[in-house]
């Protein structure tokens, strides 16, 4: 999924991009409203994160123009303005959510996943994309796994990785394949990135992360789901 992030504060923009990329999104970045509009028309992202106060064209104007071009694309405002009127204006302009600064990574992730679920629901109204890995039920459109009563929040990348392993049950998937399929062709591979991601994912989906059964390590090669 492609996400356009338009934010004039470089540090926030970088952090948001890092979080989104880590979640598994392909991120387009813009530091002003005009660039955001240009990038949107060139790449047609799946959703847009907009700062309200931006040079050139402000977030509300960008939102208005985006809505003229595409009535469906989800738009999330990121703003320091928490005034009621700003929220109302933003939402009336057709924004889907309003993330108010200051926020942390967890809040940003939660909101982004919520938007992604909405996108999936729109594209897969029949709740398609469910699969099972042992006792873990994974719903790709909901970005959630369920083990009994336990609900596990997953990122887009988590779901893709689990889907890949599930689809190649019993096979050993090497790092290059996983990078290529889960991170995308543009991503410059880094062995620690994959291991760290798998490590974090195991902490959430494995009953005992030290003795993983869903994602097993094949030393020197890659990972495997035995089913």
């Amino acid at each position: 999924m492609k996400v356009l992030v338009a934010e004039d504060d470089t540090l926030i923009r970088r952090a948001v991009i890092e979080v989104l990329a880590d979640e598994g999104y392909q991120v387009l970045e813009a530091s002003d409203g005009q660039t955001a509009l240009t990038l949107f028309h060139e790449h047609r992202p799946d959703f847009v994160c907009l700062d309200v106060m931006m040079p050139e064209v402000n977030g509300f104007d960008v939102c208005r123009k985006l809505r003229d071009a595409d009535a469906e694309v989800p738009i999330v405002f990121i703003s320091a303005k928490s005034e009621e009127v700003d929220k109302v204006v933003g939402l009336e302009l057709g924004a889907d959510d309003f993330i108010v600064k200051p926020f942390g990574v967890k809040e940003l992730v939660a909101r982004i996943r919520s938007i992604t679920r909405r996108c999936h629901r729109r594209s897969q109204p029949e709740n398609g994309g469910c699969f099972q890995m042992l006792d873990l039920d994974i719903n790709t459109s909901e970005l959630r796994g369920r083990r009994g009563e336990q609900v596990i929040e997953l990122s887009l990348r988590d779901v893709r990785l689990l889907q890949l392993l599930h689809d190649h049950r019993g096979e050993v998937l090497d790092r290059a394949t996983i990078f290529d399929r889960v991170w995308g062709e543009d991503y410059f591979p880094n062995s620690r990135t994959l291991d760290q991601h798998v490590s974090r994912l195991r902490k959430r989906i494995e009953i005992d992360p030290n003795r993983p059964v869903l994602i097993r390590t094949v030393h020197g090669v890659g990972y495997r789901y035995e089913g």
Partner: peptide, 24 residues
């Protein structure tokens, strides 16, 4: 307060990211 929000967002975001790095 509004002006404090942007630096504070950066502090929180980067602290979160750092926490994530440390977890690894």
């Amino acid at each position: 307060s509004h002006e404090l929000k942007t630096p504070l967002t950066n502090i929180r975001m980067y602290a979160d990211l750092l926490e994530r790095d440390l977890e690894d």
